[in-house]
Every structure is written in structure tokens, then in C-alpha cells.
Design a protein around this nucleic acid. Structure first.
Lengths: 333, 333
DNA sequence: ACACCTGACTGTATCGATAAAGGAGTCGGA
DNA sequence: TCCGACTCCTTTATCGATACAGTCAGGTGT
């Protein structure tokens, strides 16, 4: 490996001068700079990022940890975070916490973190049990659906209110037998339990009866899960004319499952999702959804960690809830 | 920041002993190990990854650079790469090369690379002009649609053959007036020009006339682009009964655009995509597509870089082309 | 003539971890 | 009794870049 020393020797200067050239330090004679640059080029020198990071104590990188990289939701969120962070001169790398959440999450939080100046953690299913894990001396913000009384900043989605509004929307459009497709684990506080709460409240406040037979739990919030939930629902013979889906991804699966069973959307059944992923704008029919304002979430997340990186020690950890709006499209027409 | 020295002092041992404890070196007395672990816990020590990387000369991390993180295709590919790499004990981080490809790509390849032990570069639109850029002394594999006579390993998709097969599939199903929706830049060698070639060849070999009016270019290979292409196509008044789409994402947009214009798929027009993204299995109608065997691609990519990491200097850069199969679904029924 | 500044460099210590080598102590066998 | 092997731990050097202090020549102002 060719190092700065090699370049320095080749150019007949000290390593410090090479460093100065690389970092655009102004007081370097043009002729010297040229010699150094030529040497760099000749030898094919590249700065060693590990060494620079060690010395500088920073990496200029923000980590974004997500449970699954192949869910459109995270990709679209990542895209916004990258845009915001790169405007501030930071690079973002995405890392997957994955199926083996426990191990992975703790690995990222407790050891890899020093690869990043800050960590944005999208933590589906993070419980209060993880609180201690997050008690780290490190700029971090939790992004996600879980209500979390932890020692770090947390940006929540409007789970209860959003699902409340979504359910009300279905009722306003005329649905009365409203199903919900959600995670099969309703231990609070998690996404499903919160959204389930919003659904229940909307039913109650509208005087619509809650039928447990219309509540379908699935192990994973995927399209595949949504499809089989829809099939089970139809096959059960229970009458329903609306479905609240825990995420857009699930909703797309549900619409597919309904179509397979010959149920028409929105004619027979209205469907609404949550997240406003781009795919919902192009599905057939277009998917109505709850749009939690991802731009706001991304901007806030980045701004919060930047503030901590900048060393604002005054700042007290807070919980934020993004604003939202119901987007009515064809699936609830 | 609390360092190993601090831990060592607190535990009354040398830093090397702390290191040994952390790295599970066997010859440490239990009592000493406990003292060290207690000190680590008390002080909240975390190993500094930058220092370890510098010392070790490796990061145990593979970089995966993609043009856009919010395209399902890349997310799904990333997921497979992560699975394969983590089985080999490597971590993967995803990085976006982004809109400003020139700058970003060169930044990643030429300087950030030392953050990774290897780089898998998904390089849409990498031209022969970038050849010099890639002449780096660094384990790297190019993944993507471009034919590339470069100094590194390259895994190509079966662009020509796949699109050839897709077009033949439409013809076999009865289509004769077959449109193509592709990038507006057909400068070879890029995805669009190659796939365009496959399309043309299939038409020619089947004795079907090529009508330039049925060739629609879009600036970005997105759903939005696909939709407007479909609208333009219908509005132009040209008769067509089949559409070959350059990617599944574009195809989903095309199906949406056709639906908006009252054109039925597959009854009036058959549609086929390329990539086999998961969304196509759940769209209404389900999307026929060319499946390039992403598992094969991901596995090969990881294996190739691992071989280079392991120091196989014998290996000569090669170009691989993934196998594929046409997946017939409802959109071409 | 002197202090004082600025530009253009260089030398050295340092960031935090770890590999390599080696010292002290213990134990078993010849 | 002595030797080698083994365990447990320490010392030292090093990875590659950079902050900081400092050198030295040449100019400026008074």
C-alpha cells in the first residue's frame, strides 16, 4: 500500500506538506503543490480513511440502520435522509439490522457506532427493554413507530391519530364492517398495538361495532402477508366492506389477495394503507393512505443528529410526532 | 471518550490484556477477565473501530454502491448480497452514488474505498470512459447492465438475450404491434441500447415490422416515466398490442398509464418488464417479466470479492452474464 | 537597526488498538 | 535437579494521517 510517506519521499517534501496539499491548505507554493500532486498521481496514492478517521476523531458519516433494506418504505426514507445529510456535507451509509434484530442492533449501537458520527435508527419493534442499550454517549435518534421513553431523541409516526383518521375515512365513505390487517403481536408499545388502538377508537367514536373476526394478524408486514390475510378474511365468510392495513406494503398484498378472490376494490371493499410509499400512487387501483410527511421526518432526524454532533449539550431528549394527512385515492373512492 | 488505557488502568492490567479479553484470547485468567469486563462495563467502554481498522488493515465490511437507494430493484439486490456476505462474516453497507454520478462515483471508488475491504458497484450508466477510474488496486466487482471491458470483474445481466426472449414471448402470445419503453439515451453500451438491440432482433427474426413510432424514450427509468410514456403512446394514436418495458418499475408505471387511458392489460395490450422485482408478483394484473436470477448475481458478486480479499492474485478479471428465465404472469396472459 | 509579521515549509507526538516477542511463574517428567 | 512446555501477562513497535509547535527566509514599518 502506498502511503503519504511514499508520496512525500517521491516529491521530496515532508508528509505534512502532502497532507496540506490534500486538505487544500492555502500556504503551499504552486510548484510544490504540483510536485506533490504529480507524485500522488504517479504512485496511485489514496488517503487511508481509517487513519484519517482515527486522527480526526470524526468520520463525516451518518449511519442509518433499518430492519430490512428491501422494503420500499425504508428505501424512500433513506433517500430523503441522504438528500438532507449530504446538503450538510455528511455522507450516509445504510446498514441492515435484519432478522436477528437483538444481536445486530446491539452490534451496531454498541460497537460499530464509532464508524459513524451519528446514528439514525429505524427501529421497528424496539421495546422499553432496549432502553439501556440506547443509553450511549453518542448522537443518535430513533425513528419509528414505537413510543419510547428512552434517553435519546425519538421521532414517532402519528400511529394512533393516523389510523384513527384512516378508519374514519372509511366510515365517512360508507364502510361499516371494517377489518384490520396488522402484526400478530399486539404487545404494546409496538406499531400494531398503537394503530390497532386508533382503529378501535375510530370505530367506537363512530358507533360502529368492533368484530374480532375482522381482526387479522400476520407474522410479517409484507405483501405476502397481506395477501394471505385477505384470502383468510374472504374465506372465513365474514362480511366486510373496508380494510385498514397496517402499512402500504401490506395493503398492496391485501388488494392482490382480494382480487384473487374476486372481490372488487373499492366497489365491494374499500382499502386504506399507511406510509404513503410511492408504489401506492401507481397501483391499480391507486391506494388511499396516511401520509406521515416523510420529508419532515427525514429533515428532523438529520437536524437532530447534526445538532448533537455540533455539541449541543443543552438539548434534552424529546419525542416528536410527525404530522400527517389522509390521502384519498381510488381504493376508497 | 473512554479508551482501552482507561479500562486497563481501572482493571489494573495492561491494555494488551484488555485487548485479549475483548478478542477472546484464551489464556486469560477468569478472575482477570472478570475484572476487565467489570471495568469495561463500569466505564462504558466501546472499542474504537477506526483504530482497530487502521491497525488491522481491514474493516470486515463490503461496500455496496447503488445509483438510487429508493428503487426496489436495488433494495432487493442489497438484501441478497447482505445475506450472502454475512454468512461469510462480512458486513455490508449501502451507499448511494446518486444523481451527481460523476463526483460521487469517483469519491467512492478513489477515496472512501479504504473504508471497505471490497466494493460492489452497481453502475447503471458506467461507460468505457470510466475505465481508468476503475483501475484501482482494490477488490471490486461491477454489477450492472453495461457491457464493460474494464480491468475488474463484471457481472452483467442478460440484456440482449433477456429482452429478446421477452419480445418473443409477446409475439408468441399474439402481439404484433409491439412498443418499447426505454431510456431516452441509447448510446451504447448502456442498458437501454442493449435491451433495444434484443427487442429489435426478436422483431426481425420473427418477421414483425419495427415501427419507430412505437419506441418511447423517457429520461428516468421510474414509474412516473413509465406512466407518461404509456399516456404519450396511447395519445399518439398509434396502434399497439404489446409493450416491452426496460424495467419492472417502468412497467408498473406503464400499466398504470394504460389503465388511466382505459386500455386493458392484457386484453388490449400485453406488458412485460425486466428484473423480477417482488412488486410485480402482487401488481394487478401480475407482471410478466424477465428474471435474471438475482440470487446467482448476488452470490457471484460476493464470492468474487471474497476471493480477491483472500488474496487470489491469479484470478483474471472476467465478465459474467447471469442466467435468466421469462416469467409469464397475467400481464401477458 | 530592530522588532514583528507572513509564507512555506519540517519534526514530532499522537489518535486507539493490536501483533510480536518476551518475562515470570508453575508444573511435570527425565 | 534441571529442562522444556505452558499459562498469564507486559513491553514495545506500529498502522497512516494530522495538530501543533517550531524553523527559516524574506519583507515591512518605524
Amino acid at each position: 500500500m502506498v502511503t503519504m510517506q511514499d508520496v512525500a519521499k517521491a516529491a521530496g517534501v515532508s508528509t505534512m506538506t502532502v497532507s496540506n496539499v490534500l486538505n487544500h491548505y492555502p500556504h503551499v507554493r504552486d510548484e510544490t503543490r504540483d510536485r506533490v500532486l504529480r507524485a500522488i498521481d504517479d504512485l496511485g496514492y489514496r488517503v487511508n480513511v481509517a487513519a484519517r478517521n482515527l486522527r480526526a476523531g470524526r468520520t463525516n458519516t451518518i449511519g442509518f440502520a433499518v430492519p430490512e433494506v428491501d422494503r420500499p418504505y425504508f428505501g424512500q426514507l433513506a433517500s430523503r435522509i441522504i438528500a438532507r445529510a449530504s446538503a450538510a456535507g455528511y455522507r450516509v451509509v445504510i446498514e441492515q439490522t435484519g432478522a436477528d434484530r437483538e444481536t445486530e442492533l446491539s452490534a451496531i449501537v454498541s460497537s460499530r457506532n464509532r464508524m459513524y458520527d451519528a446514528l439514525i435508527l429505524s427501529a421497528v419493534g424496539l421495546g422499553t427493554a432496549d432502553r439501556e442499550l440506547l443509553r450511549v454517549d453518542f448522537p443518535m435518534v430513533i425513528l419509528g413507530e414505537t413510543v419510547f421513553e428512552g434517553p435519546v431523541d425519538h421521532i414517532a409516526l402519528p400511529n394512533v391519530e393516523g389510523t384513527f383518521a384512516a378508519t374514519r375515512h372509511l366510515i365517512a365513505r360508507g364502510s361499516r364492517r371494517i377489518a384490520i390487517v396488522e402484526g400478530d403481536d399486539l404487545l404494546p408499545p409496538n406499531v400494531s398495538s398503537l394503530r390497532h388502538g386508533g382503529y378501535l377508537r375510530a370505530l367506537r367514536e363512530s358507533g360502529v361495532e368492533f368484530d374480532p373476526a375482522l381482526s387479522v394478524g400476520i407474522p410479517e408486514l409484507t405483501m405476502s402477508g397481506g395477501r394471505s390475510a385477505a384470502e383468510r378474511l374472504v374465506d372465513s365468510g365474514a362480511a366486510f366492506d373496508g380494510v385498514v392495513c397496517i402499512t402500504d406494503t401490506v395493503a398492496l398484498g391485501v388488494m392482490r389477495g382480494l382480487a384473487d378472490r374476486g372481490v372488487r376494490v373499492p366497489d365491494d371493499v374499500r382499502v386504506i394503507g399507511f406510509d404513503a410509499i410511492e408504489e401506492g400512487e401507481y397501483s391499480i387501483p391507486r391506494l388511499s393512505t396516511v401520509d406521515p410527511d416523510h420529508d419532515e421526518v427525514a429533515a428532523l432526524a438529520v437536524d437532530l443528529v447534526l445538532r448533537r454532533i455540533a455539541g449541543d449539550t443543552e438539548w434534552q431528549p424529546r419525542e416528536f410526532v410527525s404530522s400527517f394527512r389522509v390521502v384519498a385515492r381510488e381504493s376508497t373512492a
